[in-house]
């Protein structure tokens, strides 16, 4: 249990004037001061604090697999969801959540999306991972083979002969379906 830090600070000032922050350090050395409820959405952080009773508020938790850029994206998502939760603890405002999520991923390139999937997996935020892999799936949906290869930088490792056979037999799969 996270008795030592979590409860000692919150019990002394139960309705705290100043929100408790948790420091997270990314791979490139930047330290993020994150509000506790937001940081606790990162399962890796939550279990770290739950497992280690001797950590203090000054503890800076290193996250060597998360870049600063990915961290910005992750925190934007988690903060937005924390905000939704705070405003409507019973049920999230679905319309708003959807609008936020749509705008949120529109701005992300495939490369950024990949970085965030890796980060969300590493930080073990299952909700975000579900969402991001769903976004990747959406980007793959209705695309031709050629399009997928080009768009996602996949190396075609079929031999020219195999490729020719596939193209002959499954012509439909290689023609652009949805150029988006």
């Amino acid at each position: 249990m996270s008795s030592s830090i979590a409860s000692s600070s919150s019990s002394s000032s139960s309705s705290s004037k100043k929100e408790k922050k948790i420091s997270l350090k990314t791979s490139d050395g930047e330290v993020f001061e994150v509000e506790e409820p937001v940081a606790m959405q990162l399962e890796i952080v939550r279990s770290f604090f739950a497992d280690n009773e001797d950590v203090t508020e000054q503890t800076v938790m290193p996250l060597p697999n998360v870049s600063t850029a990915a961290m910005h994206g992750i925190l934007e998502y988690c903060r937005a969801h924390e905000e939704f939760r705070r405003r409507m603890p019973e049920a999230a405002p679905e319309e708003e959540v959807r609008a936020f999520e749509a705008g949120y991923v529109d701005r992300k390139s495939n490369e950024e999306l990949k970085e965030m999937i890796l980060a969300a997996n590493y930080l073990n935020i299952s909700k975000l991972l579900d969402f991001l892999t769903g976004v990747a799936a959406k980007r793959i949906e209705n695309k031709s083979v050629e399009y997928v290869r080009a768009f996602f930088g996949v190396e075609n490792d079929f031999t020219p002969e195999e490729e020719a056979n596939l193209r002959r037999e499954y012509e439909w799969a290689f023609e652009g379906v949805d150029e988006d």
């Binding site: 892999t133 799936a137 083979v145 997928v148 290869r149 996949v154 075609n156 499954y170 799969a173």
Partner: peptide, 20 residues
Amino acid sequence: ECLSRVPSSTLPSLSFVCRR
């Protein structure tokens, strides 16, 4: 995780993308 979320209608072409 990504591929398993793709709708069935798109699955056919995906197996031609690469061996993996």
